[in-house]
């Protein structure tokens, strides 16, 4: 037993250090981006100013002038918010029906929904451009971005809600039925208060996915509905000239989501694994 104790004492001192080192390595690129955002563009590429420099806020002050940041940020906020709301409005009743009144096809419907998520976006890019440009006159509108973000996230929203709803005892909902509560009343007065936590974390995760989406938002917009993904993608290769200001605008683009993410990291697991990992 003596050797075991010694071994674990050695381990007790070593593992936390190793864990911290790994965590700091993973966080380093984000730290470096934030760090660089306080350098002037000139300082950002000088080796002698790698760590020692006079910090400045000018990159953040000039963000509106340099990149028109707020226009893109507004679009991101509006499209992500409404896409999340619409997905919930469509998803909550569907998940409710599947969880509390399943038919023999429910399982297949759920798997089919998930399979639409696997449809490669690139395969249907041109038809979407063609339709929205030539027929629907929706290209580069916020409405189109909201609609597409809502649709690509709907399968995951329904899955997540389904797993949360399934954990609510059926009897509670049945009791409501006995008392003659309408379906709408059941959803509004019984289901939503009970599943509030699950619905909130579904909403939070969907919002994060919408905000970070970078295929449709880049390809179906030009200026009017362009989101932060499009802004960053458009400044992909500054050739070292604008490292300072590019870091600042990147930091501003990801900071709200990273902070939101910190708060919902626990729910993220249940959400993304559809409750299969507990």
């Amino acid at each position: 037993m003596a050797t075991v104790t010694q071994h674990s004492r050695f381990g007790n001192a070593l593992w936390p250090v190793l864990a911290w080192v790994v965590a700091l390595i993973f966080f380093f690129p984000i730290f470096w981006m934030v760090f660089t955002s306080f350098k002037t563009d000139a300082d950002a590429v000088k080796p002698e100013n790698l760590f020692l420099f006079t910090p400045t806020l000018e990159n953040y002050v000039n963000m509106t002038k340099d990149y028109d940041y707020w226009r893109f940020a507004t679009n991101s906020v509006i499209t992500s918010t409404f896409a999340t709301l619409f997905a919930l409005v469509v998803g909550v009743p569907a998940a409710y029906a599947m969880a509390f009144d399943p038919s023999r096809h429910t399982k297949d419907v759920l798997l089919w929904m998930l399979s639409t998520k696997m449809l490669p976006a690139a395969a249907v890019l041109y038809p979407m451009t063609f339709l929205t440009k030539n027929f629907l006159d929706m290209y580069d509108t916020r409405f189109l971005v909201i609609l597409v973000l809502c649709l690509i996230n709907l399968p995951i929203v329904i899955w997540m809600l389904f797993t949360y709803f399934k954990e609510i005892p059926k009897e509670i909902i049945e009791a409501g039925k006995m008392d003659g509560v309408s379906t709408w009343g059941e959803i509004k007065d019984i289901l939503i208060p009970l599943a509030w936590g699950g619905i909130a974390s579904t909403a939070l995760l969907t919002f994060i996915f919408c905000w970070n989406e970078a295929y449709w938002t880049v390809r179906l917009t030009t200026i009017d509905a362009a989101t932060l993904s499009k802004l960053i993608e458009g400044n992909r290769a500054p050739e070292g000239l604008f490292f300072g200001r590019l870091s600042a605008v990147s930091t501003a683009a990801v900071a709200p989501i990273i902070i939101l993410g910190w708060f919902c990291q626990k729910q993220l697991v249940q959400g993304l694994t559809f409750g299969a990992v507990k």
């Binding site: 970070n212 960053i232 992909r236 939101l260």
Partner: peptide, 26 residues
Amino acid sequence: GIVRVLLISPFFVMPAVNAVLWINMI
């Protein structure tokens, strides 16, 4: 707790920022 927060952070970075950050600054 802090280690967890630091570790999970990269997952929330938008892909466009991830790519721009790595290919240029790093």
